[in-house]
């Protein structure tokens, strides 16, 4: 018996978007990503990767076309989506404990007013366990290393038990060893949720994701095996050296 087709988690149909200066960032983009896939958005700077994520989060509205996330409009799906922003968007010196930062990911899931409840705290501790940061709850967020901070932000994103996890350049400031451990953790999370991440490190990303979405105003999705030098030079508009990394993700 043939496998049932997996439902689409992300659906974009003829989406176009431009910022106030009139520069088109995305043009007539159509894309479908099935549930359970582990996909990476790649492309040159200014190509529209982050804009695409913001459209999926409902932070921006398309000028033309339609966006659906988990079968509904992005704003309606927000509570079922986890999001890890670029590290530059987060103040590394913010006065908060690790537990407090993770708990912020529970906003919008329980009661609207007052302090978080016991169930929220338990979920936050479980999320910290999942990103291998047991024992970090009471530590100061400002005192963590870059890699630990990034794990805390992933814990914050998964504490609402999302069906889709979006990550914007999650390893941009990490060294290779920390990056490997980080992707190993993501690979584990990918067992139970759809993951879409923006990354510049195509050479490495190719080894762990199953779909590569090339974004440069227009969007083309490829199975990872089909991404070769020709696809890359078309995407970046010139020759790009694709460095092969010998990372091991277990």
């Amino acid at each position: 018996m043939a496998d049932e087709p997996r439902p689409s988690v992300v659906e974009l149909a003829g989406v176009s978007f431009a910022y106030e200066d009139g520069r088109p960032v995305l043009q007539d983009v159509s894309l479908e990503l099935p549930a359970g896939c582990f996909a990476s958005l790649v492309g040159p700077n200014g190509g529209g990767k982050t804009t695409l994520l913001k459209l999926l989060l409902g932070l921006l509205a398309p000028m033309r076309g339609a966006v659906k996330v988990l079968g509904v409009a992005p704003r309606e799906a927000r509570r079922r989506v986890g999001y890890v922003p670029q590290h530059t968007r987060v103040d590394p010196h913010f006065p908060a404990t690790v537990l407090e930062v993770v708990l912020l990911g529970r906003l919008g899931t329980g009661r609207r007013w007052g302090p978080f409840g016991r169930h929220d705290r338990e979920a936050a501790l479980a999320a910290l366990h999942e990103v291998r940061l047991d024992g970090f709850a009471r530590r100061s967020f400002a005192a963590l290393s870059g890699g630990e901070r990034q794990r805390v932000l992933v814990a914050r994103a998964i504490v609402c038990e999302p069906e889709l996890l979006l990550l914007d350049e999650p390893v941009a400031n990490l060294d290779q060893v920390v990056e490997e451990a980080f992707f190993a953790m993501l690979a584990e999370l990918g067992q139970r949720m759809t993951i879409l991440l923006v990354s510049h490190d195509l050479g490495f990303v190719k080894t762990i994701v199953d779909t590569v979405v090339c974004v440069n105003r227009r969007v083309v999705a490829h199975p990872t095996s089909a991404v070769d030098g020709h696809v890359i030079s078309e995407l970046y508009g010139g020759d790009v050296r694709l460095v092969h990394h010998e990372h091991r993700v277990s």
């Binding site: 927000r78 999001y83 987060v90 103040d91 908060a96 906003l107 007013w113 609402c160």
Partner: peptide
């Protein structure tokens, strides 16, 4: 009543929006 919402706005405005 709003400590955590304000904390989210101060720490990461984008996250605050995403969380409604």
């Amino acid at each position: 009543l709003l400590f955590h919402q304000l904390q989210a706005v101060c720490f990461d405005e984008e996250l605050a929006r995403v969380r409604g």
